[in-house]
Write a protein that binds this DNA or RNA. Structure first.
Lengths: 242, 242
DNA sequence: GAGTGGTCTAGACCACTGC
DNA sequence: CAGTGGTCTAGACCACTCG
């Protein structure tokens, strides 16, 4: 029995791809409703159940958000509930705190070997580097150095960062139409160098949590590489294993 | 047919609970097949589609494992593919390594205030404390101190730990019928004290990754509390954000 | 070939939202 | 009230595994 099609792909997977394509193409923007299951079923020529299964998986991946009685929405980093989805930081005593981003610098550069590799660019392609502090309850806790693809975040300036109230990823969404969908982090413990110690208000040589992150937008395309130094004197990085 | 309960709960959720109950009660053991969807549908008096949705979610939570054409299996920590599900450690260069657990001590104690709170026990209830090293490629990388509920792991001995080839959670499953299903971790960077430095072969004061973990079995019951000190000179803790 | 999970459909009805 | 997602069912057929 020869298999008819060498690459079998279920219908709902194909629908999933089509929806991601539409999201990537900006047909429906973050925070907006997408068409109802029935409409999509007609549009793609499949049953509602098949559309439903596709949306189920996209919702499980946090690309979409279902709200009974209202509709299905494009997930957004500007949704207050999604704020801490990529920032796994918590005060040691568990109390909620106010947080604020303090941009320090923003400059243009050429991608080095490592940045080019991670971001899928060529050597010396344009990148943008941002340094910023994250404060909790007015005290600095995280020092971030962020490498962005220059072709995508062309017009980013320090002033833009300073004016924006909200998360960095919210800004990327609103101003550049780039939505971070997935990220990989690698954590290590390191000793604070002079600069980091000064900015974070700790002694030189103190242990800091180094968090290296690669963030991806639709289609597993890497667009950001960052390294954070977290002061864990009064905070910790939380993670769930399932 | 529909139960007129004040708190509405979908049928498939109820089926989910019944299946978890059966798992918890040991009706089907880790690694074994559970009855087919059709059989379960008859047993619970619902349609196969409803059983299917229940199993779908349990499989997504890693309680069950579906294998097309063979059946649905109870997930097990002795399945080689599940070995690294709770150990998010990787060599910096990404090369796979052999790992080995080296038990150091195992003794009985009474729960202090913190252990009692975390493990849901009363002050001075019996607990068991285990210290062990994890080696990668023959070199010590993790020092674990593990607090276990004494009522559950009654007969655990150092010899038993030394003889077991495989993961600790695999031992718990095989000898005590306790399957770890979920865990919460809190990470910080700390300085190595004298003891840890000696055991891990680093200098005193070197930054180490402190990983505090609470592990839960079925029904979100906490059964283990542990603190690991990870040497991140040549390894890192990896995490995926979605 | 028999048995398992995986896909797809069509239709009925329920629960929630907002006009 | 109409429109949305959420649940449940029944049945057909496909893909995989194993004896």
């Amino acid at each position: 029995m020869a298999t008819e099609s060498p690459t079998f792909s279920p219908l709902y997977q194909q629908i999933k791809s089509l929806i991601v394509q539409a999201l990537d193409g900006g047909e429906w923007r973050p925070g907006e409703v997408i068409p109802s299951e029935g409409e999509l079923a007609v549009r793609y020529g499949v049953s509602q159940g098949t559309v439903r299964k596709a949306i189920d998986e996209l919702a499980a991946d946090n690309l979409l958000l279902r709200r009974q009685g209202k509709g299905t929405f494009v997930a957004s980093h500007n949704d207050p509930k999604a704020f801490f989805r990529f920032l796994r930081l918590q005060s040691l005593n568990g109390v909620a705190e106010s947080s604020r981003s303090v941009p320090l610098e923003c400059w243009r550069a050429k991608a080095g070997q490592e940045a080019a590799r991670v971001l899928g660019m060529k050597l010396a392609d344009p990148i943008i580097i941002v340094r910023r502090l994250l404060e909790f309850s007015g005290k600095p806790v995280v020092l971030d150095e962020i490498y962005l693809r220059g072709d995508i975040f062309k017009d980013l300036t320090l002033d833009m960062l300073k004016e924006w109230q909200g998360s960095l990823y919210g800004l990327f969404e609103a101003h550049f139409g780039v939505r971070m969908v997935h990220a990989e982090e690698r954590l290590r413990a390191v000793a604070a160098d002079r600069t980091a110690a000064d900015l974070l208000g700790v002694r030189e040589g103190m242990p800091l949590l180094s968090v290296e992150r690669i963030s991806f937008t639709y289609g597993a395309k890497p667009v950001e590489w960052r390294r954070g130094l977290y002061s864990t004197a009064e905070h910790c990085y939380v993670n769930e294993l399932g």
